[in-house]
Write a protein that binds this DNA or RNA. Structure first.
Length: 546
RNA sequence: GGGCCCAUAGCUCAACGGAUAGAGCAUCGGCCUUCUAAGCCGACGGCUGCGUGUUCGAAUCACGCUGGGCCCGCCA
C-alpha cells in the first residue's frame, strides 16, 4: 500500500470510532506555505457527521499523532488539516519509490479488470490528420493509465471497410488509375480529391498488371478496394507507430458481418422487443432509453445502418472478454452518443461499463490561415507532416496537455518557431538532469545509499515538496484514470519537473557535505524514477542527454 | 428550433467545491570559473463574460442571459 493511502486508512479507522457512517474518501493536496501536505477532508466529513470541521481536524490530528510518526498534524483554525513530513515518513516514501523503481505507481493486476479502448480509428479513406491524432494521444495515455492500475487493456483500432464512403474512395482510386493511364474518365462527384489517391493509383500503374484493365468492372473494383484499403491501413499503422502507439487489435467492420455479429445483435434487440418496422425499414425504439428519436437499424433496401454495425461491434468487444469499453470519439460524434447508450441499456449492460469520451475540435493553422482537415477536399495537413515538423514527443504532449472539453488551436508556425519552448522539453530536461547527477556521481565514485531515516532528518522545505510530489504520484494516476483525464498526468509531470528544477538550482548535490550529498542523491534518484514512470505513461521518451 | 462543448493575465492554457486563482509564451530586470542556462529568481499583468441562486466556502454546482466552436441523414 502506498504511503498516503496508509495514512488515509488510519484516518478511516479513527473515524469509525467516531461514527458508524461511511467516511468520504480522503484527498491529499500538495503543500503550501503553511505545510508540506494538506487535506480539506474535515470539511467533507463535517457534513456527514454533523460536527464542525475544526473539531474533526483537531480530533484527527490528536488521534493520528498517537498512531503514526510519519507526519505531524496541525489542525488549522478554519478546518484544514495540515501535515508536515517527519523523517520516518520521508523515509517510507523514498524507500517505496527506490525499491519499486519502474513499478512505483502501479497496482496489482486484477483478473476481472479487462478494458477495451478504441481510439483514433480514422477511416481508411485517407491519411490520419491532427484531429484523429488527438484521439490517438488521449486513448493511448488512458490505456497506459488503466494498465498502471492493474487493468488488462486492449488497444483497438476499428476501421470501416464497407459502405458508401469506402465505395467513393474505391471509385476515386479507379478514376485516378484511368487518368494516370491517359484514359478519359469522369472523377466521381463525391470522390476523394487528395494527392494520396493519385499516389496509390500511380503505384498500381507501376505494377503494369494489364489484367486489371481487362477485368470486368466488378472484379476491377474489388481489386482497387483490397489494394487501396490495404495501402491506407498500412499507412495508418506506420503513422500511429510513429506516435509510439502499438495496437493490440485491428478490427474491420466487414469482419463483424462475416462472424455473425450483425445478425446476433439484431436478434438480441428483437428478443428484447425494442425493434419495429416502419416505412419498409427496421427501427430501434431508442426513445424508450432516452434518445430524442427512434433510429433506423436496417434500411428499406435491407442494408444495415452504421448504428447497426456499431452495436454489433460493441457486442463483439464485450464477447471478447472486456468488461469496460471505452470509445474515444471526435466532436462530430456527440449527437450519436444517446443512441449508443440507448442500445447499451436496451441490452441490459451496466451504464458505467461503457464510456464514450468526446474530445473537442483541433483547429490547425499554418502560415496564418486555418488548414482544412476534410479529406474530401484533399487540401489538408496530415499527421505525418506534423510529426515531421514538430516531432513525436512534442506533438503528443501538446495533444494530451489539454482537457478533452476544450477546443484546441494548433499553430504549425508557432510549433516550428518555439519548438524549444514546448513544455515536453521542460519535463524531459528535468529527467535528464536527474539522470546526469546520478551518472556524474558514478564517475566520481560516489555511491548513492539506500534511503535511511537518519538522512531524512535534514531535508529542507523545497526538498520536502519533492517528497510530497513523489508520495502523491500513485493517487494522481488513480484520479487521472478514474476521471478519464489524461491531461492530469501531463500537469503532474510539469509540476514535478518544475519543483525539481527549483531544487536543482537551490541545492548543490555533488560536492555538498557528505550527509547532504547522500540525502540529496537519494531524493534525486527517487524523482528520476517517478519522472521516468510518468513519461512512460505519457508515451514520451526519457532521453539520456539533451 | 433542439443538442454537446467553451468563455480565467496581452496570447495559449491550469486549478478533486477549499486557504492569497496559478504556469508557459510575450515584455522588462537579475543569475553560468563549481552537478546540463532546454534551467532558476524577480517585476509587470485578473470584478475568472454578465446576473441570480445553492453553502461554512463558488472560476468550479443550478437556473437565466451574452458571445464563440461543433452536431442534428434510411451517410460513416
Amino acid at each position: 500500500m502506498y504511503v498516503l493511502e496508509q495514512i488515509s486508512s488510519e484516518v478511516s479507522s479513527e473515524l469509525k470510532q467516531l461514527s458508524p457512517l461511511q467516511a468520504p474518501a480522503i484527498a491529499w493536496e500538495k503543500g503550501n506555505n503553511l505545510a508540506d501536505l494538506s487535506t480539506a477532508f474535515a470539511f467533507q466529513a463535517a457534513k456527514i457527521y454533523q460536527k464542525s470541521p475544526v473539531a474533526i481536524a483537531q480530533f484527527l490530528a490528536k488521534k493520528l499523532s498517537e498512531k503514526t510518526n510519519w507526519l505531524t498534524f496541525l489542525p488549522h483554525e478554519r478546518g484544514f488539516l495540515n501535515c508536515n513530513w517527519q523523517p520516518e515518513g520521508i523515509y517510507q516514501v523514498l524507500k517505496q519509490a527506490s525499491e519499486m523503481g519502474p513499478e512505483y505507481g502501479k497496482r496489482s493486476k486484477e483478473p476481472e479488470r479487462k478494458a477495451n479502448i478504441e481510439f483514433c480509428s480514422a477511416n481508411p479513406t485517407g491519411p490520419i490528420h491532427l484531429g484523429n491524432a488527438r484521439g490517438a494521444a488521449i486513448g493511448s495515455v488512458l490505456a497506459n493509465l488503466l494498465e498502471t492500475l492493474g487493468w488488462q487493456v486492449t488497444r483497438e483500432y476499428y476501421f470501416d471497410d464497407y459502405g458508401t464512403q469506402v465505395d467513393a474512395f474505391v471509385l476515386s482510386l479507379e478514376a485516378r488509375y484511368f487518368q494516370a493511364l491517359g484514359k478519359p474518365c469522369q472523377f466521381p462527384e463525391n470522390g476523394y480529391q487528395g494527392q494520396y489517391v493519385r499516389d496509390i493509383a500511380n503505384e498500381v500503374v507501376q505494377l503494369q498488371d494489364h489484367a486489371i484493365l481487362n477485368k470486368d468492372s466488378e472484379s476491377r473494383l474489388a481489386f482497387f478496394r483490397e489494394y487501396g484499403l490495404g495501402k491506407m491501413l498500412e499507412q495508418h499503422r506506420k503513422t500511429t507507430s510513429r506516435m509510439g502507439i502499438d495496437y493490440d487489435a485491428w478490427v474491420s467492420q466487414s469482419s463483424l458481418d462475416r462472424d455473425g455479429w450483425l445478425v446476433q445483435v439484431i436478434q438480441a434487440l428483437e428478443k428484447r422487443g425494442v425493434l419495429f418496422r416502419k416505412d419498409g425499414a427496421v427501427w430501434f425504439r431508442s426513445t424508450q432509453f432516452g434518445d430524442d428519436k427512434d433510429r433506423v437499424v436496417i434500411r428499406s433496401n435491407d442494408e444495415p445502418t452504421y448504428l447497426a454495425w456499431d452495436m454489433a461491434y460493441h457486442l463483439n468487444k464485450r464477447a471478447r472478454g472486456a468488461k469496460l469499453l471505452i470509445d474515444v470519439w471526435g466532436p462530430d460524434h456527440h449527437g450519436y452518443v444517446p443512441r449508443v447508450k440507448a442500445f447499451w441499456q436496451a441490452l441490459g449492460y451496466e451504464e458505467a461499463d461503457l464510456q464514450l469520451l468526446i474530445y473537442q475540435m483541433v483547429h490547425l493553422f499554418d502560415k496564418g490561415a486555418e488548414v482544412s482537415m476534410s479529406r474530401r477536399s484533399g487540401d489538408f495537413v496530415t499527421l505525418d507532416e506534423v510529426l515531421d515538423t514538430v516531432g513525436k514527443d512534442a506533438t503528443l504532449f501538446l495533444l494530451v496537455d489539454r482537457s478533452l472539453d476544450s477546443n484546441m488551436d494548433f499553430d504549425l508556425d508557432l510549433a516550428r518557431q518555439h519548438s524549444l519552448s514546448n513544455p515536453v522539453y521542460y519535463v524531459q530536461y528535468a529527467y535528464t538532469r536527474a539522470l546526469a547527477l546520478e551518472r556524474e556521481a558514478a564517475v566520481r565514485e560516489i555511491e548513492i545509499p539506500p534511503p535511511d531515516p537518519e538522512l531524512c532528518r535534514i531535508y529542507t522545505s523545497s526538498e520536502r515538496n519533492l517528497v510530497t510530489m513523489i508520495a502523491m504520484m500513485p493517487e494522481e494516476i488513480l484520479r487521472a484514470a478514474l476521471t478519464f483525464s489524461p491531461m492530469r498526468i501531463a500537469n503532474y509531470a510539469k509540476d514535478l519537473a518544475g519543483q525539481f528544477h527549483a531544487f536543482y538550482h537551490d541545492e548543490r548535490v555533488l560536492g555538498a557535505n557528505p550527509p547532504d550529498q547522500a540525502a540529496r542523491l537519494v531524493l534525486v534518484r527517487a524523482v528520476r524514477i517517478v519522472l521516468a514512470n510518468t513519461l512512460a505513461i505519457l508515451g514520451l521518451s526519457a532521453p539520456e542527454h539533451m
